[in-house]
């Protein structure tokens, strides 16, 4: 078995009488690009919210980096090494592009309020490092020119990339992208694809929750498909494209290949 960064075992989540996640298991190999797809309401976001501690699971468990994942406060998710972006962009709009990325560095630094107020040498050094790393990340996503602008003034595709940079600033082992291509035009999607591949090449595992089939099929090495809270398929893109259950879930019957949809 390959080196697994993330494992979900029999995860079940119920809301009243609705079973949003029904005995879902999956494994994500370290360093891979992993796709989680499914029609609207399939449970992708619920899965994600249980993973990041917003909901507690009713049954089952998560393993991350060999240890049980058991988060009680949101900031602990970032601490163990999972960072995320959001389906609807949630940047800090009133802060500058650079500051948004600097926020992500917070979790990897130690100096507290005392150091910040009394300007201890270590706090100063740390703040210089935060800023330098943030500049590097902006260069990485090709947004250096906008560093001083308020993030809400960025174009849509740029805001998406900035969210990814902010997530990367936490030095995650896994970055989870929640529909990063939503609302993007073709050119922006290509830029995004290149960025995702580069992130994985640089050693960060990527979990991609996405509707854009072409992007998912092109970029992911492994895909899990959810429908009505159940896992209906698990395999490589070519396996998924031929899977009758997936085709049925997406098209409501036996039609063309899923890959042709986008």
């Amino acid at each position: 078995m390959a080196d697994m960064l993330f494992t979900a075992e029999g995860v079940t989540k119920r809301f009243g009488g609705v079973t949003a996640l029904d005995n879902v298991s999956m494994q994500i190999p370290r360093g891979s690009i992993f796709g989680l797809i499914g029609p609207n309401g399939a449970g992708k976001t619920t899965f994600f919210n249980t993973l990041t501690g917003l909901y507690q699971v009713d049954e089952g468990k998560f393993l991350f980096d060999g240890k049980p994942l058991n988060v009680k406060a949101p900031h602990e998710v970032a601490q163990v090494g999972i960072a995320r972006t959001f389906q609807n962009i949630r940047l800090f709009g009133e802060m500058t592009v650079l500051e948004n990325v600097m926020v992500g560095r917070h979790v990897r630094t130690k100096a507290g309020a005392f150091g910040a107020i009394f300007r201890t040498p270590s706090a100063r050094r740390e703040e210089a490092e935060i800023e330098q790393r943030a500049h590097e990340l902006l260069a990485y996503i090709d947004l250096s020119k906008r560093a001083g602008d308020k993030s809400r003034t960025l174009a849509y595709g740029e805001q998406r990339r900035l969210e990814i940079a902010r997530a990367l600033a936490t030095d995650p082992k896994m970055v989870a992208l929640d529909e990063p291509a939503a609302g993007m035009n073709a050119t922006e999607t290509v830029t995004l694809r290149t960025l995702i591949e580069r992130i994985a090449n640089d050693g960060t595992t990527v979990m991609l929750i996405e509707h854009d089939m072409r992007l998912v099929m092109n970029v992911c090495q492994h895909i899990v498909v959810l429908d009505y809270g159940k896992k209906i398929a698990d395999g490589t893109p070519s396996q998924i494209q031929k899977d009758p259950a997936v085709i049925k879930a997406y098209l409501g019957g036996a039609h063309a290949e899923v890959g042709a949809k986008a």
Partner: peptide
């Protein structure tokens, strides 16, 4: 400062600030 940035981030969106490790 780092603390100030974290304060502004928390003021703007507590949930997101939390998930970003604050």
């Amino acid at each position: 400062t780092k603390i100030g940035t974290a304060m502004r981030a928390t003021a703007e969106n507590q949930k997101v600030a939390g998930l970003m490790g604050i």
